[in-house]
Amino acid sequence: MKILLAEDDAETAAWLARGLGGEGHAVDALPDGREALTQAMIGTYDLLILDRMMPGLDGLSVLKSLRAAQIATPVILLTAMGAVEDRVAGLRAGADDYMVKPFAMAELLARIDTIARRPALRAEVTELVAGDLRLDLMKREAWREGQAIDLQPREFLLLKHFMERPGRVQTRTILLEAVWGLHFDPKTSVVETHISRLRSKIDKPFAKPYLTTLHGVGYVFQP
């Protein structure tokens, strides 16, 4: 399996990477929650292992942002917080499993095997199509009217978010959480700037605009 590991303790991360690698798993390890969220959004993983407490963004917030973005990759939360309410909070946020530190590597491997044996709930979507706009999720490439569109990573995530929700209004708050992983308003024009850049690539060169601004409300993608 290809696994994204988010753990800020270097010793623990190294131990986990060795143990998982020894079983044939490919592991990408990151020490920061915000970095992990970005990588989970743009990468293709079979499993995410998230530490509950991390700098930048905690594991529970990363999990909530992923589920809000409709990313269903299985998640195991690791934590020293073993109270029942903590486990319940993790599972309700969308975690597939929850392990309290310290734990044995054998148990983690067994739980990973259990997740791997679960039947897929649905076929993996590798391409999004809306009108004459096409987005390849595997190659991370976009085309409209057969013309290639060069998108920066955040622009790609923004377009993916819109294409998965055609006709649905997306507010600034929704976009900040789903695309940037922010649960607060940074009071900057980051959303507006990226919307403008995205429009200049997917709309302005073509006859029909797809991305509409509803002033005072948000944005809607209407192919």
Rank of each mutant, 00 (worst) to 15 (best):
L4R: 03
A13R: 05
W15K: 12
R18T: 11
G21F: 02
G21I: 09
G22L: 02
E23H: 13
H25T: 10
L30A: 13
D32C: 07
Q39P: 13
M41V: 11
I42Q: 13
G43D: 03
G43Y: 00
Y45S: 03
L47Q: 03
L48Q: 09
I49R: 04
M54G: 03
G56I: 10
L60W: 06
L63S: 09
R67G: 05
A68G: 14
Q70T: 15
A72C: 15
V75L: 00
E85V: 12
E85L: 08
R87G: 10
V88D: 12
A89I: 10
G90V: 02
D97F: 10
Y98D: 06
M99D: 12
V100R: 02
K101L: 06
K101H: 07
F103V: 08
R111L: 02
D113K: 00
T114K: 13
I115C: 01
R118N: 11
P119D: 07
T126R: 15
G131M: 02
D136G: 09
R144M: 06
E145Q: 14
L151Y: 03
E155M: 09
F156K: 05
L158T: 03
L159R: 01
K160V: 14
H161G: 05
E164P: 10
E164Q: 13
P166K: 02
W180E: 04
S189K: 14
S189H: 09
V190R: 12
V190G: 08
V191F: 02
T193L: 07
T193D: 13
R199I: 12
R199A: 11
K208T: 14
T212E: 15
H215E: 12
G218W: 00
G218R: 00
F221C: 01
F221K: 02
